[in-house]
Design a protein around this nucleic acid. Structure first.
Lengths: 212, 212
DNA sequence: ATTCGCCTCCTACGGAAGTAGGAGACGGGT
DNA sequence: ACCCGTCTCCTACTTCCGTAGGAGGCGAAT
């Protein structure tokens, strides 16, 4: 279709999408911009093909934290993804890095820095800010999150309630299904996460909620 | 006995105890210094009486994190405590504040700043550094840690193993006691923390391990 | 000398958790 | 038309959890 580089901006803040879009026009590369405001619409646009680079906000409706990133990397390994986020904690940076993102752009960056970073990203050059603390457990973290990404939406809901200490009975009431159904989900969660009780599941779920 | 202000330096680093002791001699107040290198010896010295101010390191043998602070505040509410630590994370600061500490002294402080801060503390003036992020959940956190502080050592061990997803049977093997004993501890833990299952207990335990 | 906190262990029981295996319904994709 | 993933629900069974209530030993404090 086009010879431009296709960029998808995935962020739930319209203002910020415009700001990044603006920055992209100042790069030395011809780009064509698509936008998405949720993980769902992001995946949908990716399915339509032709995307070269995704600029992804980690805090979006549909899936908080790293789940979205991993999901995209799983389903579209050939698409470059750079994370754009307000969260500047070092732990997240390490996770993003190990999860295979091409770059990490703090929202606090100066515009000119952003432009030059984008310039590099469009040419396939990784970009990571310096000076941020390196997390330690990044490899284990990413492995954990990769497993979490295999859970179906309903299973993720069940897991979240397990992590709040809910009984199967309470979870059933909350999700308006039978307790036997919950048990089915629970067993499947254990199988996917390679664990054998709900307390371990609760700890696992931490990975999705800690990043503030 | 003496009319000096009695200061107890509780830190497991001898060098640092000396540094603080040195800083104290440069203040405008007459002080008498005691030292302790563990939570146990700190509490012991407090029991002997006459302490006006404790300069407490949060990372000491015997009890990591905020547990030591809460314990001291519980047993000796009339003694002023200022926390001295290498950990500069905002979350900890908020917790320390809400836990009733008189001040928070980062180990990275310049000597002259330290002296003036100590001068204030000796006169009962609170000291908290500026520019550190305020944690959000501080009140709930402190309430949680206050409850955790009521656990006996063995109960804390059991809790830590629960948080790793261990079965009662495994915990029994690990601590070399019978499973029935573990069950007794578990029930008591639930009563003290005001919860009703081990998954909630595991989440509770996070407060003791997250602060790095 | 007695009290108190902590740790240990027991029986007995009801309820919850977790597994195994099967089954029907729906929707999307090939 | 068919497969596949997801969600739903079921029975039956074992194991684990958690509570209740009691009991003995031990060390520290009063």
């Amino acid at each position: 279709m086009t010879e431009d580089i296709e960029v998808l901006i995935a962020d739930d803040h319209p203002l910020f999408r415009n700001a990044i879009s603006e920055a992209l026009t100042n790069t030395q590369t011809l780009v064509h911009v698509s936008q998405a405001d949720s993980l769902e619409s992001t995946l949908q646009r990716l399915n339509e093909g032709n995307i070269d680079l995704v600029l992804l906000d980690l805090k979006m409706p549909g899936s908080e934290g790293l789940l979205g990133l991993i999901q995209i990397r799983n389903q579209f390994p050939e698409v470059a993804v750079a994370v754009v986020t307000a969260n500047e904690a070092g732990r997240t940076l390490a996770q993003v890095k190990a999860a295979g993102a091409l770059g990490y752009l703090p929202k606090s960056m100066a515009l000119e820095d952003l432009v030059s970073a984008l310039d590099g990203l469009l040419r396939g050059t990784p970009f990571y800010p310096e000076g941020l603390n390196q997390g330690v457990d990044s490899q284990d973290d990413v492995e954990a999150i990769r497993k979490l990404a295999t859970l179906t939406p309903q299973q993720q809901r069940v897991l979240a309630l397990i992590a709040r200490g809910f009984l199967n009975k309470q979870i059933a009431y909350e999700l308006d299904v039978k307790e036997t159904t919950v048990k089915t989900h629970v067993s499947e969660i254990f199988r996917k996460l390679d664990i054998y009780n709900r307390t371990q599941a609760a700890m696992y779920n931490q990975y999705l909620e800690v990043p503030e």
